[in-house]
C-alpha cells in the first residue's frame, strides 16, 4: 500500500479546496480504510460508517497533514483512533463476522471446494480469536499483518512508543497462538510444560 505518484498532486489540490481531488483519494484508499474498520468493528455497516467518517475527518484535517508522512499511514491512524473510540462507546457485544456475504472480498484465489472449506473454517477461527483480543492489541496486529507497517509506523499511527507496540504485538501473538491451541486441542507433553519458576 505504497504512496502513489498522483497522491501528492491530489493532496495538494484537495488542500486548495478541490473536492474532486479528494474524491480520487477516497477512491484509491477506500479498500484499506474499510478493511481496517471492518477488521476492528466486525460489522460491515458499522465499518462503512466508520470508513466514511474517517475520510470526512481526513478531509477536515487535511491542512494538518504532514507531507513527510505516508498519506496511507495518516489515514489508517485516523481510522484506528476512530474505531477504538467507537469500540469504547459500544455497549453491545461484537456481532458475528459472518455478515461478510453481501460485502465484497477483494480477491478470491481459493483452490477448490474442499480446500476452500478448510481454509474458510480456519480463517473463521482466526477471526473469532481476533474478536476477543483487546482493541489496542487488535489494531496493532491488524496494522502489522494486513498493512505491513513497521513498528515505527504503528507507533506513529497509534501515538504510542515502539516498545509499547512490540509489547502489544507479543501479547497479541501469544494470545492468538494459545487460543489456537485450545481450539484445535493441541496436546502438549508434560515434560515440555513451561516451568515459570525455572524460567526465572
Amino acid at each position: 500500500m505504497g504512496e502513489r505518484a498522483n497522491d501528492s498532486e491530489w493532496i495538494h489540490r484537495a488542500k486548495q479546496g478541490d473536492d474532486d481531488a479528494f474524491a480520487k483519494l477516497v477512491e484509491v484508499y477506500q479498500v484499506p480504510v474499510f478493511n481496517l474498520c471492518y477488521r476492528m468493528l466486525g460489522n460491515p455497516s458499522e465499518a462503512e460508517d466508520a470508513a466514511q467518517e474517517t475520510f470526512l475527518r481526513a478531509y477536515r484535517g487535511l491542512s494538518r497533514y504532514d507531507p513527510k508522512r505516508r498519506f496511507a499511514t495518516w489515514l489508517l491512524s485516523i481510522a484506528s483512533h476512530h474505531c477504538i473510540d467507537r469500540l469504547r462507546r459500544r455497549r453491545y457485544p461484537i456481532q458475528s463476522l459472518d455478515e461478510l456475504l453481501p460485502w465484497q472480498q477483494k480477491s478470491d484465489d481459493t483452490p477448490g471446494p474442499e480446500a476452500a472449506l478448510t481454509v474458510k473454517e480456519e480463517q473463521e477461527t482466526v477471526r473469532e480469536i481476533l474478536e476477543h483480543l483487546g482493541d489496542q492489541d487488535r489494531v496493532a496486529l491488524i496494522l502489522r499483518y494486513w498493512y505491513d507497517l513497521s513498528y515505527e509506523e504503528i507507533a506513529q499511527c497509534l501515538s504510542i512508543s515502539v516498545s509499547a507496540v512490540k509489547s502489544r504485538l507479543h501479547r497479541s501473538r501469544r494470545y492468538l497462538a494459545e487460543q489456537w491451541m485450545v481450539r484445535k486441542s493441541v496436546a502438549v507433553g508434560a515434560s515440555g510444560r513451561c516451568d515459570e519458576a525455572s524460567a526465572l
Binding site: 461478510l100 465484497q104 472480498q105 480456519e122 494459545e178 515440555g192
Partner: peptide, 22 residues
C-alpha cells in the same frame, strides 16, 4: 506447540484478503 500454532495463525492472517466496501 506454541510456535506451530503461531505459524498456522500467521499463515491464515497473511492469506486473508482485504475486504472492500460496496
Amino acid at each position: 506447540a506454541l510456535a506451530n500454532a503461531w505459524t498456522n495463525i500467521e499463515d491464515q492472517i497473511l492469506s486473508a484478503s482485504l475486504v472492500a466496501p460496496l
